[in-house]
């Protein structure tokens, strides 16, 4: 077990090193969410006057949504690293070492967790600087980070599974371009559930992005509903576990077809 853990740490190091060497990449991955945050934050600021809108500041309302959305969008790229590793023969080289393949997946999920937390903290910080206020305090902020990591793991695992099965960059990019926007718009990222048309509301209830956003919105509540936080974190945990299982099954299929 400890060898597996050590191996994962070394593999996290391998993935993070290029980011640390060129932090500008991290900035690139943040450029889209930052534009969303400030563009939509400005564009829809008047929306708060709608009856039933849960917050006085649209920016405060938007920040947790952007955190979750960013976790999804940036983790969707995880599979492209795998395709690159497969093309270069690096994955085969890893598989020929005594490392267990669970350590290989864990290395990527660990990397994903670290980048997600860093990105989330940056978005929260920028939100605060721009005037967003979170009466819920530190508790729901931590819950939001956990939710963001779980969302990140789910989509990273899905992306890696697609990479292992399809082995083409184009397919991963197409799938996640196709998924990203609908999942964001059919969720409570931009609009509270009670103000959505009924059909979107119905879809949104089963959308993991909404689950994460629901956890994060507790930042706005003066009294945190921990029951809601707990149940939605559990949904996300179950989803992440299922997709990680799919990912390891995809690994098996990759090796069988080798």
């Amino acid at each position: 077990m400890s060898a597996t853990l050590q191996d994962s740490v070394h593999l996290v190091g391998r993935r993070l090193r290029p980011l640390l060497r060129q932090p500008v990449y991290l900035a690139f991955t943040l450029s889209t969410p930052v534009i969303w945050l400030f563009l939509f934050g400005q564009l829809f600021r008047g929306i708060t006057v709608l009856p039933g809108f849960p917050s006085g500041s649209y920016l405060s309302f938007l920040v947790p949504g952007i955190v979750i959305m960013t976790a999804m969008l940036s983790s969707g790229w995880a599979g492209t690293n795998y395709v690159a590793d497969m093309d270069r023969g690096i994955l085969d080289r890893l598989l020929v070492t005594p490392t267990r393949r669970v350590a290989i997946v864990a290395g990527d999920l660990g990397t994903q967790a670290i980048t997600t937390v860093v990105q989330s903290l940056i978005i929260l910080g920028l939100g605060l600087l721009a005037g967003a206020r979170f009466p819920g305090g530190v508790g729901p902020a931590v819950a939001l980070l956990v939710a963001a990591v779980l969302v990140g793991w789910s989509f990273a695992a899905l992306s890696i599974a697609v990479a292992l099965l399809v082995r083409r960059q184009e397919s991963i990019i197409a799938i996640f371009n196709f998924l990203g926007l609908p999942l964001s718009f059919l969720s409570s990222t931009l609009m509270p559930a009670q103000l959505m048309p009924a059909w979107i509301q119905a879809i949104s209830r089963f959308n993991p992005i909404s689950w994460g956003v629901t956890v994060g919105r507790q930042l706005l509540a003066p009294a945190v509903a921990w029951g809601t936080v707990g149940s939605h974190l559990l949904y996300l945990l179950a989803l992440a576990a299922a997709l990680i299982a799919l990912c390891s099954a995809a690994f098996g299929s990759y090796q069988r077809s080798a």
Binding site: R14, R17, R88, G89, I90, R93, T97
Partner: peptide, 30 residues
Amino acid sequence: RRAIGYVSQKTAVDLDATAVENLALQGQLH
């Protein structure tokens, strides 16, 4: 796997890492 080294047809070097880092990872995983 403990007993073998494998150098595939493709040059399986991580291009974003240095030679030292590539060698180190290989040794660490062993």
